Computed example of a mutant assay.
Amino acid sequence: MMLYRVELREAAARLLSDATDAGPNVFSKRALPLSQEALPAIYLSAPADTARSTGRNAPDFVRVTQLNVDAMVSAGTPEATQDALDDLTEQIELLIMQDVGFQALLSQVTDITTRQEVTSENSAYIGKVRVAFSLEYFEEFSPGGTPVTGLDLRMQVPGNQNFAETLDTVFVQKSVQ
């Protein structure tokens, strides 16, 4: 079993792979930087996660995972690099936000933050963007211990001799998964 934030990161990587200008250069388990020859490329990470309790009862949480989608492009001029970066940024946002299967994994996307830059590194123009999605979902932790298999129910009224005592045993049926 893997953490749900890891499942979300991997689902986003599958979604973006081959459906963007980055083609197969979509990575979720690789460190940056990448060489200019490997561009365009997309790198996904889920570096932050916050859980807020829903109350004092069962261990239920509303979680928000930050999914960072970092993309890099390179083109011959600053203008061409910016255009390629804008196209890839749009592809990322539309795929994540419009895919029904991916959105079904969430309760909502609480916000999206986008930061772009075009720089000249080693005389090559490199465009970089980070699209950070805040993905909200619900998580419940199962209580530990021995599972309940049956209950003994006893009903009586203390101090009332006219009320008959009743005892019943209820067995909990195992669910088949």
Score class of each variant (00 low, 15 high):
S28Q: 09
F27Y: 15
E117H: 14
E117A: 14
S142F: 07
L85G: 00
T114E: 11
L32R: 12
A51D: 05
L105I: 03
S28W: 15
E93Q: 09
L88S: 00
Q161K: 14
L153N: 03
M72N: 04
T114N: 06
T77C: 02
I112Y: 05
K174E: 14
L106T: 01
D60F: 06
L3R: 09
Q156H: 12
A71L: 14
T77P: 03
T110E: 09
D111C: 04
Q36D: 04
D87R: 13
L39F: 10
T110Y: 07
R56S: 07
F171E: 12
G159V: 06
A41F: 09
E140G: 04
R63A: 02
S74D: 03
M155N: 08
V6M: 08
Y125E: 00
R52K: 09
E136I: 02
S45A: 08
Q103C: 05
V69I: 13
P143V: 07
V6Y: 10
L94I: 07
Y137H: 03
S35T: 14
E165S: 09
K128R: 14
L106M: 05
E140Y: 10
Y137R: 01
T114W: 10
M1N: 05
V73P: 03
E165K: 14
E139P: 02
A75P: 03
I96R: 00
E117W: 10
A75I: 06
L106Y: 03
P40C: 07
A12S: 04
L34M: 12
R56H: 10
P143R: 04
F102Y: 13
L39Y: 09
A38Q: 14
S107D: 10
S134K: 07
L67W: 08
F133M: 02
T113N: 11
P78D: 05
L44C: 03
A38S: 15
D83Y: 11
A11V: 03
A164G: 15
G144I: 01
L67I: 10
V73L: 05
L167R: 11
K128Q: 13
L105K: 07
D21H: 06
L153D: 00
R130G: 00
T119V: 15
R115T: 11
R56A: 07
A84H: 04
M2W: 07
L32M: 07
L95A: 11
A51P: 01
V69H: 02
T114A: 02
M72L: 15
R52Y: 12
T149A: 13
D49Y: 05
L88W: 07
V69D: 01
V148S: 07
L67P: 00
A75S: 09
T169G: 02
